[in-house]
Amino acid sequence: MTGIVKWFNADKGFGFITPDDGSKDVFVHFSAIQNDGYKSLDEGQKVSFTIESGAKGPAAGNVTSL
């Protein structure tokens, strides 16, 4: 699925993605970002991701920028 990064705190390594389908915002951890180098996201960035079952509920996985 796709969405827009609502916010991401690079110091803490997590944030939230707002899915394009209008569903509830999804937690994203830096370890789910699939790019080389520094793993961070920018507010407003368009991303593709999967929904994984995290310890505290749904979380984004396999996050790639579009």
Rank of each mutant, 00 (worst) to 15 (best):
F27C: 03
N9D: 15
D20F: 08
T64F: 08
S40K: 14
G44K: 05
F16Q: 04
D42R: 14
V47H: 01
K46S: 08
S48Y: 13
K24W: 07
D25W: 04
I51W: 08
V63L: 05
Q45N: 07
S65A: 14
E52S: 11
D21I: 07
K46Y: 10
K6F: 04
T50G: 04
K39H: 09
S40R: 12
I51V: 11
S31R: 10
I17E: 00
F27K: 02
M1K: 11
E43W: 14
S65I: 15
S65N: 12
D36L: 11
K56G: 11
A60Y: 02
E52R: 10
K56A: 11
Y38V: 12
V28A: 03
V5A: 02
T18P: 00
Y38L: 12
L66P: 07
S23Q: 08
E43A: 15
S23E: 07
V28L: 07
G15N: 00
V26E: 00
D11C: 15
S53N: 14
G61W: 11
A59S: 13
E52N: 11
S40E: 07
N62E: 07
K39F: 08
F30K: 12
G37K: 10
A10F: 09
F30I: 12
V28P: 01
K24A: 14
Y38T: 11
A10Q: 13
V5W: 01
Q34C: 13
S23T: 13
Y38K: 14
K24F: 09
I33H: 03
T50Q: 09
S48G: 09
S23A: 08
D25F: 03
A55M: 12
V28M: 05
K6E: 03
F14A: 02
I4E: 06
V28I: 07
D11L: 15
V63A: 02
G61L: 13
H29T: 04
A55N: 12
S48I: 12
F27M: 03
G3W: 01
G54N: 11
T64N: 11
I51S: 05
A59M: 15
N62T: 09
G37E: 09
S23P: 05
A59Y: 15
G37F: 08
N9A: 08
S53E: 14
I17H: 00
F8D: 01
I51Y: 10
V26F: 04
S65Q: 12
D25R: 04
D20H: 08
G13N: 03
D36G: 12
G57A: 06
A32G: 08
Y38N: 11
N35W: 11
T18V: 13
D20C: 15
G15S: 01
I4V: 14
N9W: 11
D11P: 07
G57I: 05
F14P: 00
K56W: 15
W7H: 04
D42H: 15
S40L: 11
A10R: 13
V47T: 02
V26T: 03
S48Q: 12
D36N: 11
V28Y: 04
S40F: 13
I51M: 12
L41H: 01
G61Q: 14
Y38M: 12
E43M: 15
V63S: 01
D11T: 14
K46N: 06
N62I: 09
F30A: 11
F30E: 07
A10N: 11
K56N: 12
F8N: 00
D42Q: 14
K6V: 05
K24E: 12
I33A: 03
G22A: 06
E43Q: 14
P19K: 03
F30C: 12
T64L: 13
S31K: 09
G37S: 09
